[in-house]
Amino acid sequence: MHNVLAQPLSPIGSRRISWLKKALQVLISISVLVVLWQGAITIWDLPSFILPTPLSVFDVLTERYTILFKHTWVTAQEILIGLLLGVSIGLFFALQMLLFAPVRRWLLPILIASQAIPVFAIAPILMLWLDYGIASKVAMAAIIIFFPVTTCCYDGLRSTPQGYLDLAHTLGANRWRRLWHIQLPAALPALGSGLRVAVVIAPIGAVVGEWVGSSAGLGYLMLQANARMMIDEMFAALFILSLFSVALYFSVDWLLKKLIPWHAQ
């Protein structure tokens, strides 16, 4: 007799089941949310200008997708370029603080003080300096991102296990080779943590910038829809923004797990 149950699943088979489980989990979560949403409207008899029905939001998503896509593309550019700029600045500052003690003494208090200024307060100044185009929103996103990236990366760089540094010393490494071959790879998991935080908060910077002054983008669309009492369109824009943020987070998370396999294990 051949025992089918005793046969282990192939790696591809078990991976497919894991994906199916995750998809089912997402589907159930969305269904529960939609049911609760519709339930709240029915029970409390909420008017559409307070809370539109899920169906009306879906209608906007299908009927006005060209306009939504146009504005999503603008916000996506702001977020992605802001991320690139913020992460680069964060990495640069972290390296400067690691390598040059005077820079660390002067820069760290300035960086901490810079975070005490609310990003909303900076937005009008950036509009003034960089105009109403994409540049001011990219700068907003970068400003909001660079600090967590700097601190995470700096922490990672200075917490290289002492054993690795000793090994590098006995193997004859100079300062730069030690940095490149030991400290930077060892700091990648910490940099990954900073990057995960950055992708979550980058949309905040971009949308806040759009609210203060812009002519395109999901934040702009939400403001316009709000002024015209088109609450369903506002919700549609919010839905796309959330979907984009979640997709960005999981893509970066997946990429980091692929690039830093030793940390995932």
């Binding site: 054993g163 006995t170 004859g172 030690r178």
Partner: peptide, 26 residues
Amino acid sequence: YMAQQDLLLPWLSVLDNVCVGYRLKG
């Protein structure tokens, strides 16, 4: 120097770890 911990670099293969001294010397 051989420490209590093996100090193998987790981002390198075993062979690359064995040859890591050359990389560190440039």
